Amino acid sequence: MAARTSSWWSVVGVLIGLELRQRLRTTRWRITLAVTFTVISLAVFGSMYLALSVNEADANYDGWARNLYVVVLGVELFLGVVLAPTLTATSINGDRKDATLAVVQATPISHWQLAVGKLLGSWVSCLALVGVASPYLVWGIVAAPYGIGTSVLGVLVLCLIFLCYCGIGLGYSALTARPAGSAVLTQATVFFLVLGLPALFGLLYSTTSEDHEVVGAEYTYVDDSYDTVPNCRDVASVRSYEHTERIWWLLAPNPFLILPDVVAAHDNPRVRVWTSDERPPDPSVARPIAETLATARTGPYLKEPTCADTRANASNRSFYDERAEFESGKVGDSWYLGLAVNVILGALGLTVAARRLRVPARTLPRGVRIA
């Protein structure tokens, strides 16, 4: 059984090698990697210049270094969103158009081996983006406040997202006859996850509004004089709140929210008031981005500040501290759900591709030839 499994994966390894050699025949990959390294370098040193030179009074290398990891990962993700689907969007119909697919299908390999080999071959090509940025990633991991283990986990999640997008592109490449059509459909699907679902969340935001009766502080001034201390009393009122916990899942598959949520739970916490003379370190930009997703998932905080909250001192927790803790309670608890959605989409694309690569083929779409 072990020998059979080893043989199965050895065939997949040969197919991965064929896929990589086919891509290495051209010199465009060298240009692509050079452009990628240039773009990442410009983002890194451009952000350093803006952080250290534009506002010299607040220039702080430590503050910039805390965000270097997020900057590099964000640029990598942006480039991968464009490149990863493109690598597989023409993998099957392009080979069929060039009459090279039938040569491989004539060998004693299964349709699953062929599909997995093409998927992993495209994924390895896409991982070259991560390899090019590895010097900056190592720099960012060392300087990040998350810890090495959490930072490496963020890189692994980035690689898995690339694999999912390659699977989506492979499925469309098997479904459509023309490479241009599959490329457009793949990019449209990926950008729907990145932009379309957040736009749909914004459109549905107002529909989640619901009225609730809450008790809050009401202030009145004596003789309409604003120079005196106002009187405070707690009154009940009806206020409208948006229950975003009903539609937060629309934001979960967004990769630009998944990656910050991976590391945000280990980031420096936000400190509104500090008692010592030394200001505590601020969190990186990953924390507020992840808190946006966490706030949408937890929904509204159905409470308003009362008179007792306004008189809270240092020994008591204020209303605003409790609300901030409630809204950020889900930070770091949503990224695996969004990643699972992407994995399901990628697995669906791989399954479609494998079924379309079966030999003999039962039915083919119009305009698709066997060879």
Rank of each mutant, 00 (worst) to 15 (best):
A144Y: 05
L119N: 04
W64R: 04
S206I: 13
M48R: 15
G131E: 02
I344A: 15
C164L: 06
Y146H: 08
A264K: 02
K303F: 12
A188K: 02
N316I: 08
E304Q: 09
L163M: 02
L257V: 02
G121M: 05
Y219H: 12
A43D: 08
A236M: 05
L42F: 14
P253F: 05
G167E: 04
V271M: 07
V359F: 01
V229L: 13
Q187Y: 13
A99D: 11
T310K: 15
D321L: 13
E325H: 08
R272L: 07
F201P: 05
I16S: 01
S41T: 15
T310G: 10
T220Y: 02
V184A: 13
V39A: 10
S173F: 04
E322I: 13
V14K: 13
E325S: 13
G74K: 01
V194W: 07
G149W: 05
V155W: 01
A102D: 12
F191K: 07
I148Y: 14
R25A: 07
G94C: 04
G149N: 03
R311M: 09
A59D: 03
R96W: 10
S237N: 09
D223F: 06
G169M: 06
G299M: 08
F37Q: 12
Y165G: 00
L129P: 04
N67K: 11
L163N: 00
L73Y: 06
N67R: 07
A252C: 11
G13D: 00
R28T: 13
A188I: 08
V72M: 03
E213S: 15
G94S: 08
G46Q: 09
V238N: 11
A102C: 03
H243Q: 14
R323I: 01
L73A: 14
F78E: 06
R362S: 03
W335E: 04
T5R: 00
T86H: 12
G338F: 03
R96P: 10
T220A: 04
S173T: 06
L79V: 05
C232D: 02
R4M: 00
L120D: 01
E213T: 15
V222N: 05
N254P: 05
W274T: 05
A183N: 10
